[in-house]
Simulated assay, not measured.
Amino acid sequence: MRKPLLVIASFTAVMLALGGCASSLTGESYSRGEARSVQTVRMGTIVTLRPVRIEGTKTPIGAGAGSIVGGVAGSGVGEGRGSAVAAVIGAVAGGLLGAAAEEGVTRTQGVEITVREDDGSMRAYVQEVQPNQVFRVGERVRILTVDGTSRVAH
């Protein structure tokens, strides 16, 4: 009875760790390499806003962790060949579930911000939604670009 509990606890710990590994896609988040770099700043006016969903990460970590947990859980079923077959089935199912869990845990809500820049060009920017940051159509904003990464800020 303790083995399934251990497997569930291990899987939960791995999924929580995966959530902590996800990089932030907000307009206020900078990578270490971007810090202290010169940025190009352009000004513009928001023309449209549209909610979007930013898909989660799809690394081998989720599938690998799920496979291990599923294989261990499956090996506890039956004896002999039955245990080996259950371990393989558990590993495959665990890998699929682990990959789906990783993508789901790291998926975020985003916003597509279309801006008419002062030079007349229109560009759309997608970034993660932050609870304390609300954009409005007609609002003047800054577009900051460093190393090919752009963000919209108030």
Score class of each variant (00 low, 15 high):
residue 1 M to L: 07
residue 1 M to A: 12
residue 3 K to A: 12
residue 4 P to A: 02
residue 9 A to Q: 08
residue 10 S to R: 00
residue 10 S to M: 12
residue 12 T to K: 04
residue 12 T to G: 07
residue 14 V to N: 00
residue 15 M to Y: 08
residue 17 A to M: 14
residue 19 G to A: 10
residue 22 A to K: 09
residue 23 S to F: 10
residue 25 L to S: 10
residue 26 T to W: 00
residue 27 G to F: 09
residue 28 E to R: 13
residue 28 E to T: 14
residue 29 S to N: 10
residue 33 G to W: 05
residue 34 E to M: 11
residue 37 S to F: 04
residue 39 Q to E: 14
residue 40 T to R: 13
residue 40 T to M: 12
residue 43 M to S: 14
residue 44 G to V: 11
residue 47 V to H: 04
residue 47 V to K: 15
residue 50 R to G: 14
residue 59 T to A: 08
residue 59 T to D: 06
residue 62 G to H: 05
residue 64 G to H: 04
residue 68 I to W: 09
residue 68 I to V: 15
residue 69 V to Q: 00
residue 69 V to N: 01
residue 70 G to Q: 10
residue 71 G to R: 06
residue 72 V to K: 02
residue 75 S to E: 00
residue 77 V to Y: 12
residue 80 G to C: 02
residue 80 G to K: 00
residue 81 R to P: 07
residue 83 S to H: 03
residue 84 A to F: 11
residue 84 A to N: 06
residue 85 V to P: 02
residue 86 A to I: 00
residue 90 G to A: 04
residue 93 A to R: 04
residue 97 L to H: 01
residue 98 G to E: 05
residue 99 A to L: 13
residue 101 A to H: 04
residue 105 V to P: 06
residue 106 T to M: 10
residue 106 T to P: 05
residue 106 T to E: 06
residue 108 T to E: 14
residue 108 T to K: 13
residue 109 Q to N: 14
residue 109 Q to I: 00
residue 117 E to D: 09
residue 117 E to R: 15
residue 118 D to S: 14
residue 119 D to H: 09
residue 121 S to N: 14
residue 122 M to W: 01
residue 123 R to L: 08
residue 126 V to S: 09
residue 127 Q to W: 10
residue 128 E to M: 10
residue 128 E to D: 05
residue 129 V to R: 15
residue 129 V to Q: 15
residue 133 Q to Y: 11
residue 133 Q to W: 06
residue 134 V to G: 07
residue 134 V to C: 03
residue 134 V to F: 12
residue 136 R to T: 13
residue 136 R to H: 14
residue 138 G to C: 11
residue 139 E to H: 07
residue 140 R to L: 11
residue 140 R to D: 12
residue 141 V to T: 10
residue 144 L to E: 15
residue 145 T to I: 11
residue 146 V to P: 03
residue 147 D to W: 04
residue 150 S to G: 12
residue 151 R to E: 06
residue 152 V to T: 11
residue 153 A to N: 10
residue 153 A to G: 07
residue 154 H to M: 05
